[in-house]
Design a protein around this nucleic acid. Structure first.
Length: 492
RNA sequence: GCCCCCAUCGUCUAGUGGCCCAGGACACGGCCCUCUCAAGGCCAAAACAGCGGUUCGAAUCCGCUUGGGGGCACCA
């Protein structure tokens, strides 16, 4: 590592939908590199396309970032020296620089109608050429163009891409990438409604906001030469470019489509941060998981907290190849991070899931069960299914399961009433005491734990799967445990 | 069609010319432990896409092929 200079990194989403894994990872890396160098992480809303805005998307975006624990130093709700941080509030700024580009002859007015443009595109495709603009307005005289603009003729502003030579883009993890200028298009910089497009707006903002590193998806690679050219045309020093690889669907074949995203939810998974939260994943786990998709620390360390990552992340250990999303690995990380949680913390996190399921579980009770469930649940939501019986007023039984395997109804009844007596005789209601009593009883009767305890489990919980039996009895309390066993015995 | 990117076990990856007949993790299978479910322990199976170079030596460097991915909007 050379001398560390503070990095100013920005996460610049457009509020057009849910925050997904890809953007979460980009935001994370931005945040990490900024924090690690003592720099700033900036959140900028790219909302210049007024038609695509989605109601509530910005709010969800902010919530998701907060949930993940990624906080910004400058951005909406947190003013800084380079605001405003919403592009919709910066329209005039972009127009100023668009004019500058025209004056420098690096851009030109174009009066072609959308109809003509699509016609040109079709023509190009028919001739097996890249579907680019044909340059119809590129050579209009400045005087004529200005006159038509003044006359109020609808127009856009296009960048004047060089036609010869090559443009080299330097990417931090891919090295130098060379593009033939002949393959470049004359991109639109400002639309006919006066709003700047990403290509102009992002560059102007990155410059004005003194961004030093731009981390973005590799889908931007094809337009990166244009961006390089615009930076140059404006006479500015461009930032470091980092083009991250895309995420592939779990099969590894192709990008996640709308349809596949929907199919995922049938399996209890999702690529959207909001859903992951609802599903019972920990932000710690999502962060850990997503950080490792495209980055690694060494050949064996996998468990990282956000703070670990701030300390250990580095751009030079990024991996340029696309990564397939692996949800079973997320499950694994979720288990690991749940196990790492303190009992009070875990209890507070599972409580909303109980409440959502209609159980009035109070924190005190939940804290009692967290030690025994923390290594048995994959998601926070799993705790509800596993422990619901503790919070129900009445439970129902599967009568079949109430007969001890390979024993008769009469035998079961006898073991059941003996158990009842044992329970009633216990004065110190603790797992160790209960276990000692029952172990002695089972030995005397020649019963295996599997036989008796499975029966008791069904009797007091109505479930086949629960946390360890004696712990369950403890949380249930002596009275309710006895009550439930009595009820069960009447059903045999 | 054109441009660009990528290429190690099923998946995420380690590996920057000899330490590699390739290491870790998840998932999968088996065994042990075990009151259910987990957790834990042990074991197994599993990869350098192909072909040419360069080199004393290549997973590592170069080229080609193949495969995969991304882009080609008055979206970002």
């Amino acid at each position: 590592m050379t001398t560390i200079t503070p990095v100013r990194a920005r996460f610049a989403p457009s509020p057009t939908g849910h925050v997904h894994l890809g953007s979460a990872r980009t935001a994370l890396y931005d945040y990490l590199i900024a924090k690690q160098t003592g720099g700033q992480f900036i959140l900028r809303i790219e909302d210049t396309d007024r038609k695509r805005l989605v109601e509530g998307a910005e709010e969800e975006l902010i919530n998701s970032l907060h949930w993940l624990g990624i906080d910004w130093d400058e951005g909406p709700g947190k003013d800084g020296p380079y605001g405003p941080y919403r592009q919709s509030e910066r329209k005039e700024i972009y127009q100023k620089y668009a004019r500058e580009l025209i004056e420098k002859d690096a851009a030109y007015y174009c009066f072609c109608t959308p109809e003509r443009l699509s016609q040109v595109r079709q023509e190009m495709q028919k001739n097996k050429l890249p579907p680019h603009y044909d340059g119809f307005c590129r050579h209009l005289s400045k005087a004529e163009a200005e006159a038509r603009v003044k006359a109020g003729e609808p127009h856009v502003i296009r960048f004047k891409s060089p036609k010869e030579g090559t443009t080299v883009v330097k990417d931090l993890l891919r090295g130098e990438i060379t593009f033939e200028n002949a393959t470049l298009d004359d991109f639109i910089l400002v639309k006919s409604d006066g709003w700047a497009l990403y290509h102009l707006a992002a560059i102007v903002d990155d410059h004005l906001m003194k961004i030093t590193h731009v981390i973005r998806g590799s889908e931007w690679l094809p337009t990166s030469p244009l961006h390089h050219l615009i930076w140059n045309a404006l006479g500015w020093q461009e930032p470091e470019w980092v083009h991250l690889s895309v995420f592939l669907k779990p099969s590894g074949k192709g990008k996640m489509s709308k349809r596949e995203a929907a199919d995922l939810s049938n399996d209890g998974y999702s690529i959207f941060i909001k859903d992951l939260e609802d599903l019972g994943y920990l932000p710690e786990a999502v962060i850990n998981w997503v950080a490792l998709m495209g980055w690694s620390y060494d050949d064996h360390t996998e468990f990282f907290t956000l703070n670990d990552l701030v300390e250990k992340f580095s751009l030079d250990r990024l991996n340029p190849s696309p990564a397939a999303i692996n949800f079973s690995k997320l499950d694994y990380f979720n288990k690991e991070h749940i196990k790492a949680l303190g009992n009070e913390d875990l209890a507070a996190r599972i409580q909303p899931f109980f409440i959502k399921a209609g159980y009035h579980a109070d924190l005190g009770d939940l804290i009692k069960i967290t030690p025994v469930i923390k290594e048995r649940i994959t998601t926070l939501d799993d705790s509800v299914e596993m422990c619901a019986f503790l919070f129900k007023d009445a439970i129902s039984h599967d009568k079949e399961a109430l007969i001890i395997k390979d024993k008769t109804r009469e035998e079961t009844l006898r073991f059941g009433s003996d158990s009842l007596e044992i329970l009633e005789s216990v004065s110190v209601w603790e797992p160790a005491v209960l276990e000692a009593k029952f172990t002695a009883y089972m030995e005397a009767q020649g019963l295996t734990p599997r036989e008796l305890l499975s029966f008791l489990r069904e009797a007091i919980s109505g479930q086949r799967v629960t946390p360890p039996l004696f712990e369950c009895m403890q949380v249930l309390g002596k009275e309710r445990t006895i009550q439930r066993l009595k009820e069960a015995l009447t059903l045999i």
